[in-house]
């Protein structure tokens, strides 16, 4: 059994606690949060701490860092120095220097696992797409178009995610980073970026919309729209290859506001006999469960126990995704109003 601590007991921290409690090889031993005091309700045997620093003094194998972005970096670094394996939520801090600092310290402790929560990689639609693309049957990747947006809401302006000092960035850093991470999964690194970033609606110091065009060295173009004014919650990634296309739409959340998770598979069809050109036969897969969170934690435990390197969501993935976010900001000269 690995003794686990969770730092930050908000919505995500609680979700992680449930996953830890359900995992046969993990035992939730400690929780730290300056505001929340009902840790006992989740796990009666759990020790309660006011601060992450206190928690890190406890004898634990691993910690989950589920805090606002402003304190993520220090906590990850301190946890490594305290000899703990670390699972941290994305984004890995507020700027590239944050994740670089984490990587510097990580390099000093090669026996410790560091994994970041890019759980979208573990969605069934993403895994199935990866398998189809790598099989080569759909040809060469040409372009992608990704939209990831949420509606904000009455509490949006008061949320810490909208506070430039705590969050470091807006919707792109909070949510759009997942789409940029997926772009990397499918197309690798991007050589060029053009963007428009701004505030269309919310009166906060961070962006509520980011539009970006990215081009990889071998010519794959990816379009991103990350939005906090998407009044209908939307996750949609279209991937076009020379022989066909994939459309990933929706994912399962508790409230299902992003729609069902589906994957459309279509193939280029120029067969005039059935006048299918322009409207090819499509197969649409529906996925009835989201195991991405469980898979992520399983993978973390596997890496801890075997010492094998993190393949999905390692610190280099986190750094590259963070760099893309910052390059999207930089191309339009956007700076969060710190």
């Amino acid at each position: 059994m690995y003794r686990v601590g969770i730092i930050g007991f908000g919505r995500i921290g609680r979700r992680r606690a449930a996953l830890v409690n359900a995992h046969p090889r993990l035992e939730l031993t400690a929780v730290a949060d300056p505001y929340v005091q009902d840790a006992a309700a989740v796990s009666p045997s759990c020790t309660w701490h006011r601060s992450g620093a206190d928690l890190l003094r406890q004898d634990l194998h691993a910690v989950f860092v589920c805090t606002p972005f402003a304190v993520t970096t220090d906590l990850v670094v301190d946890a490594l120095k305290a000899g703990k394996h670390v699972f941290a939520e994305k984004p890995p801090g507020r700027c590239v220097a944050d994740i670089e600092r984490i990587r510097d310290v990580e390099a000093l402790f090669p026996g410790l696992t560091v994994k970041f929560g890019f759980n979208h990689r573990e969605h069934d639609s993403v895994r199935m797409s990866e398998s189809l693309i790598s099989s080569g049957e759909l040809g060469r990747l040409m372009w992608m178009r990704g939209t990831y947006g949420k509606a904000g809401g009455p509490g949006y302006e008061g949320d810490w995610r909208s506070d430039p000092d705590i969050a470091g960035g807006g919707i792109l850093l909070d949510q759009g980073i997942h789409m940029l991470d997926l772009f990397r999964v499918f197309a690798g690194e991007f050589a060029e970026i053009k963007s428009f970033v701004g505030q269309a609606f919310w009166k906060v110091g961070v962006e509520d919309n980011a539009f970006a065009l990215l081009r990889s060295a071998d010519g794959c173009v990816a379009m991103l729209h990350s939005s906090a004014t998407h009044w209908n919650h939307t996750f949609r990634l279209e991937i076009y290859l020379t022989e066909g296309y994939l459309v990933l739409d929706g994912f399962l959340t508790g409230s299902q506001t992003y729609g069902r998770e589906t994957l459309v598979i279509g193939r280029r069809d120029w067969n005039d006999v059935d006048s299918a050109r322009g409207r090819p036969r499509e197969e649409r897969y529906y996925f009835d469960e989201d195991q991405s969170w469980e898979r992520e934690v399983d993978d973390f435990v596997r890496c801890i126990s075997t010492g094998s390197p993190v393949v999905n969501g390692n610190s280099l993935d986190a750094q590259r995704a963070m760099e893309l976010v910052m390059r999207v900001y930089a191309d339009d000269g956007w700076r969060a109003a710190r």
Binding site: S275, R281, E282, E283, R284, Y285, Y286, D288
Partner: peptide, 11 residues
């Protein structure tokens, strides 16, 4: 569990 839905021009 997943399931597939097909749309096409089969008659």
């Amino acid at each position: 569990m997943k399931r597939v839905v097909t749309s096409g021009d089969l008659t």
